[in-house]
Simulated scan of single mutants.
Amino acid sequence: MSPAFALIALYGLVFVLHLIVPGRRVTGYVRDEATGAPLRYRLNGVRVMALTVGLYFVAGATGLVPWDWLYVHRAETLATACALGLLFTLAIVLPAAPRRGLLADLYLGRLANPQWLEGHIDAKMFLYLIGAVMLQLNLLSFAAHHLLLYPHDPSPGVLLHVALFSFFLWEYLNFEEVHLYTYDFVAERVGFKLGWGCLTFYPFFYAVGLWTTAALPNPHTPAPLLGLCALLFFTGWMLARGANMQKFWFKTRPDKLAFGRIKPEVLTDGEKQILVSGFWGLSRHINYLGEIAMATALALSLGYPSEWGPWLYPLYYLVLLVPRQIDDDRRCRAKYGALWQEYERRVRWRIVPGIY
């Protein structure tokens, strides 16, 4: 089977699993543009990930597919994913009503929250699921290639990198409902940025550290430095997950003490409310700082100082999140008016407390 056809079959398998595996139904924060009713979502990400990864291990253990097949055929599978992302973009954007202009619509999208099969499939939810599953498979395959090359002297940094990244992916899918309240679902539309991004960029570029280091020998990074990488990663995770969880509880159960300790302190004009306590009193986008810290830890964990590839990942987060912070502040300023200005006076820092 050609690598191109195999990747298409793999994407199709994840779609079928997402379609048939039982999931729970939840109501999200976003409302349907036509009816104004809150959108409903069907969530089964962890189960689909578990089944797909389980099949990967069965295929590897039985010799049906080499453990490092995705690494060996990374160029062909990346090219195929690029083509699928472009086709998806054209298919979801062109039939919809124009908004800005063709190029802008192709990139940013026209439809806000497309759902199919009477809501059984949500486009954004599926895109993030396929991206997470494929990234997990790439990480496992790339690490397998390293272990096959150096079975007696593998790099602990490579193993730590895969372990931390895998934790990130499984944890993300475990909290699928929380992410329904984040910028991606609230503000973005489905076009090239999101469609090609999840079908191609997310599963392949996020693994860029292993693209450039999986075939390198053990750099013998001292264990204390690897421990500091893990500490930085979980510090970032606590900032990102803590902020998102606090916001989720505030949106769904506004009287609940976040983590049983943090009282929800708000700015209000009688109608609208802005959370200013806990994580959201540290900076206006403290979760972005957490994402950048995790990405930096993942780059550091590989321990190859002469390699620039791993640093593309945290650099990407800077390029992504700083403009997103500016756009999100603009949206909130328009939505909340004077209340947001008061929040900016109350919480001066945009992302990094004391710096930016």
Rank of each mutant, 00 (worst) to 15 (best):
L137V: 11
L135A: 11
L164N: 01
V162E: 15
V162T: 07
K193E: 14
C198R: 06
H220N: 08
D153G: 12
A207M: 09
E176D: 10
T200Y: 01
E188A: 12
L164G: 06
G197M: 10
L180S: 10
T212E: 15
A163Y: 04
H146D: 04
F168T: 01
E177A: 12
V178Q: 11
T213Q: 13
L147G: 10
W211I: 00
T182G: 01
L139F: 12
L147D: 07
M134Y: 04
A215P: 05
T212A: 15
L199F: 13
G197D: 03
L180A: 03
P217N: 13
V133C: 06
P156W: 10
F185H: 15
T200C: 15
M134I: 02
V190R: 02
G195F: 03
A132C: 05
W196E: 13
L148E: 14
G191L: 09
H161P: 05
L164V: 06
V162C: 11
L173S: 02
F192W: 14
G131V: 00
L169F: 07
F205A: 13
T200I: 09
H179Y: 15
T182V: 14
P156V: 06
H161D: 00
F167Y: 12
V158I: 11
L159S: 11
F201C: 12
D153H: 11
G131P: 01
A163M: 12
F192P: 00
Y206N: 03
F205E: 15
F165W: 06
T182Y: 06
T213D: 14
Y206L: 06
F168Q: 10
T213N: 11
E177P: 13
Q136D: 07
M134Q: 08
E188R: 01
L216A: 12
V158H: 08
L159C: 04
S141I: 11
M134L: 12
L180D: 03
L164W: 12
H145E: 14
T182N: 09
Y183I: 05
N174K: 12
A187V: 07
F167M: 02
D184Q: 05
Y150V: 11
L216T: 13
P156H: 09
V208T: 04
Y202V: 14
A187F: 05
F201I: 12
S166Q: 03
L160I: 02
V208N: 08
L199S: 09
Y172L: 04
P151K: 07
V186I: 09
E171G: 03
A214K: 04
E171S: 14
